[in-house]
Design a protein around this nucleic acid. Structure first.
Lengths: 129, 129
DNA sequence: CGGCATCCCCATGGATACTG
DNA sequence: CAGTATCCATGGGGATGCCG
């Protein structure tokens, strides 16, 4: 769309700021995984912990709190014994998740190219200079 | 498309890995700004430094190197005095940039909601619990 | 002009243990 | 079950200075 139509100074600051803002959510190590897992319906703490491999309870809690704070997740507590808590992705989070598709696809399509490029670059590390 | 059709365990690991990979590029504080600035044509080091507010020469250099390594930027050196170096975004980088649009738009559209949600959350910090 | 080298800070996040 | 609390390692990234 904007192929070659922008000028160098045209990196609009608002967009930049908002984009950075998005990345602060998406970019956190576990944020998108949690949103993904919670996008298909309410999910419990332990389920999340099982679903997302490698996450610690600590990081799960922390990330859940920030996501909740940002209005991306709704936390529902059922005052039962033992306690039961459900997390559900809000529509905003689901939109975020969708907005992520293009990036995921790019990642899939170009992962190999990048790996190759990296290998080539490293191989010429000595040659270069 | 996938509205409610996915299962909790359905967070496919490959996609997840590739996505994380993408974020390692996009998620770096200055990566996208640089790619954006270099997407509209060759741009010089000093121009980048001027175009992107707040970046240090150090971080500019570092980010340029990783972007070059990943094949997202092409570095062209003109052996003149004083030396002149141009950076150009590759097609892969431009595709990445495009894949980012959806996310940018989400960020713009929902920035206010998130700020509001955050404020509300913090206001009820004492009330809650 | 276009870097690299050095020092330093602090936010992210892992491991582990305890609790209502 | 669903968290808290504490300690600690790693590294991203800012500030500054020197160089071909």
């Amino acid at each position: 769309m904007s192929e070659g139509s922008r000028l160098p100074g045209d990196v609009e600051p608002d967009v930049c700021a908002a984009f950075r803002d998005a990345l602060d959510r998406v970019g956190s190590k576990w944020g998108m995984a949690i949103i993904a897992a919670a996008s298909s319906g309410p999910i419990r703490f332990a389920e999340l912990h099982r679903t997302i491999p490698g996450i610690s309870r600590r990081m799960l809690t922390l990330t859940l709190r920030t996501l909740e704070r940002d209005g991306l997740l709704v936390r529902t507590v059922y005052p039962t014994v033992p306690p039961q808590v459900e997390y559900t992705a809000t529509s905003v989070a689901r939109e975020l998740f969708t907005s992520t598709r293009a990036l995921s696809e790019w990642a899939e399509n170009n992962h190999e190219k990048i790996t190759a490029s990296r290998a080539a670059y490293d191989r010429n590390a000595g040659t270069r200079r």
